[in-house]
Amino acid sequence: MRIHDALISASRFAAARWQAARLEGREEEKRLWPQVSEYRAFIGETGQVYLFEDYLRGLPPTPRPHVSPALDASKDATSHEVMRLLLKAFDEAPDPEQKQSAVVLINLVNFIADTEQLAAVEDYINNRLDYAPLAIAHFTAHDEAEAWLKGLEEPPSPARILIGDKYYLAWYSREDNARGIYRDYIIEPYIAELAARGIPPATPSFDTRAEAEGWLKNHPASPFDFVSIAGEHYLAVHHKRLMRHTLHPVASALTEWEETKRVQGAAETEEGGE
């Protein structure tokens, strides 16, 4: 089974177990299954899917999944709780397909521990609302990003990157070595929602972008703040992991987002009519 298919099956297994725990009033399990989903999201958003596939291939077959010594040695209480939950789910799974999904999730936690990312995933989960949508790299121009993608033997995939002030999704297929970059409209819904709440009348105002960027270095957005540059409103987005801000012109971003939704809606209507 391809790794993406295995992760989709594992996600469905986790969702079904969460639903059963919710219906049966098992509060501890209901709390922990969403944590499992966050581990899966972390691997996906940081472009580590193929690294995880390689990790799985290197594991010897065993009748029952093991717990990583790195996890055993860690003091991460939540990961220990999650692992106990997953081992219980493995033991209770009624068929081989569900047991395999439990194995994938168990080894996902082991992979995070063995690659010393327990603190990183805890930070990701606990501070998601304090961070902008995760981007792993920034480039000033599209050609620079293309050169980066082509120059890597195995790029992180899928992974969001920034080109200038815009989000893109970089992708790579191990199966056929295809790769590419396409525009990702992940920040535009944030801009639309925040603008709909109302832009504060007393936003910091600057004559030039350079002045705004200089001010933001000492007054970082947390993670979003409106500023005015030459009379135009921008949403400043703080990318804490990249130690930089992007600046998104509100008016044009909203126009672009509405056009994107219109095109997507038309395509879905056309597909539904076929």
Rank of each mutant, 00 (worst) to 15 (best):
residue 215 W to Q: 06
residue 10 A to Y: 13
residue 9 S to I: 07
residue 3 I to P: 03
residue 17 R to S: 04
residue 93 A to C: 09
residue 85 L to G: 12
residue 72 D to W: 12
residue 92 E to T: 04
residue 44 G to V: 01
residue 40 R to P: 02
residue 172 Y to S: 00
residue 205 S to Q: 09
residue 230 A to M: 05
residue 247 L to W: 12
residue 225 D to S: 14
residue 141 A to W: 05
residue 78 T to I: 09
residue 216 L to K: 08
residue 19 Q to H: 13
residue 72 D to H: 14
residue 191 I to R: 04
residue 98 Q to T: 07
residue 4 H to D: 04
residue 147 A to V: 12
residue 116 E to M: 03
residue 226 F to H: 01
residue 66 H to G: 05
residue 30 K to W: 05
residue 95 D to L: 14
residue 162 L to T: 11
residue 156 P to C: 04
residue 234 Y to L: 02
residue 89 A to E: 09
residue 192 A to C: 09
residue 31 R to Q: 12
residue 109 V to T: 12
residue 49 V to K: 11
residue 65 P to E: 04
residue 224 F to A: 00
residue 151 G to L: 08
residue 162 L to M: 07
residue 102 A to Q: 11
residue 21 A to T: 12
residue 155 P to A: 11
residue 111 F to W: 09
residue 221 A to C: 06
residue 178 A to W: 01
residue 39 Y to G: 00
residue 226 F to L: 06
residue 123 D to W: 08
residue 84 R to G: 04
residue 147 A to P: 06
residue 193 E to D: 15
residue 182 Y to R: 09
residue 264 Q to T: 05
residue 221 A to R: 00
residue 186 I to Q: 13
residue 23 L to T: 05
residue 16 A to D: 01
residue 84 R to Y: 01
residue 115 T to W: 01
residue 209 R to D: 01
residue 238 H to C: 05
residue 83 M to F: 05
residue 177 N to S: 15
residue 194 L to K: 13
residue 153 E to C: 05
residue 230 A to V: 01
residue 67 V to P: 00
residue 80 H to R: 14
residue 4 H to E: 06
residue 91 D to S: 15
residue 227 V to P: 02
residue 15 A to R: 03
residue 43 I to A: 14
residue 82 V to I: 15
residue 198 G to E: 10
residue 46 T to H: 14
residue 158 P to N: 02
residue 165 D to Y: 11
residue 38 E to M: 02
residue 243 M to T: 11
residue 209 R to L: 01
residue 147 A to R: 15
residue 92 E to W: 00
residue 103 V to K: 15
residue 32 L to G: 08
residue 253 A to R: 10
residue 225 D to E: 07
residue 177 N to C: 10
residue 156 P to T: 07
residue 180 G to N: 04
residue 21 A to E: 10
residue 109 V to Y: 04
residue 250 V to C: 03
residue 129 L to Y: 09
residue 4 H to Y: 11
residue 180 G to C: 01
residue 191 I to Y: 06
residue 46 T to Y: 14
residue 192 A to W: 13
residue 212 A to G: 02
residue 203 T to H: 03
residue 85 L to R: 11
residue 139 F to A: 04
residue 71 L to Y: 06
residue 15 A to C: 00
residue 81 E to M: 05
residue 23 L to P: 00
residue 71 L to M: 06
residue 244 R to N: 10
residue 59 L to Q: 03
residue 38 E to W: 15
residue 147 A to Y: 07
residue 45 E to I: 03
residue 237 V to G: 07
residue 78 T to Y: 08
residue 113 A to C: 09
residue 274 E to N: 14
residue 99 K to S: 09
residue 211 E to Q: 10
residue 231 G to I: 15
residue 98 Q to H: 12
